[in-house]
Simulated scan of single mutants.
Amino acid sequence: MTVLLLGALVLAVGGCVCVVWAERGGPHWVRVVATVTLAAGELLHLARRSRRRSINRSSGGGD
């Protein structure tokens, strides 16, 4: 379990480093990794937002 969490942390930090490096004009592979990292973050954001809305609907809460 610890190895899995450590691997996820390394991937997240590496992705963030690539995003910053790509902003400064890094090589092509860095821009690809940065694009994948940003897309994954956006997908997680949308999934969390969708889940939150479905929980509010099922519990009778209003937005």
Rank of each mutant, 00 (worst) to 15 (best):
L4T: 12
V32G: 03
V3H: 01
A12Y: 06
V30N: 01
L43T: 03
V33P: 00
T2N: 04
L46Q: 15
L9C: 11
L9M: 11
E42Q: 14
V33F: 05
R48W: 04
V17G: 02
L11F: 11
R51N: 07
V13L: 04
S58D: 08
A34S: 05
W21M: 08
S50N: 15
T2I: 07
V10Y: 08
V3I: 09
R53G: 06
R51M: 07
V10Q: 02
T37Y: 13
T35G: 15
D63Y: 10
L38M: 05
R49I: 10
A34M: 01
L9A: 14
I55K: 14
G61L: 03
A40T: 02
G14Q: 03
S50P: 10
A12W: 09
V20W: 01
D63L: 09
V36G: 05
E42N: 14
V10S: 07
R52N: 06
G14N: 03
R52T: 12
W29I: 13
E23C: 10
G62E: 07
E23Y: 11
D63R: 11
C16S: 06
G7S: 10
T2H: 06
V36N: 07
G26A: 14
G60W: 02
L38K: 08
A8C: 09
E42Y: 14
L44I: 02
N56S: 12
A47T: 13
C16F: 07
V33S: 10
D63H: 08
R31M: 09
L44N: 08
A47N: 13
G15L: 01
L6K: 12
A12G: 05
H28W: 14
G41W: 02
V19H: 01
W21A: 11
A40V: 05
L43N: 13
W21I: 12
E23P: 02
L9T: 11
T35D: 15
P27N: 00
V13T: 03
G25L: 03
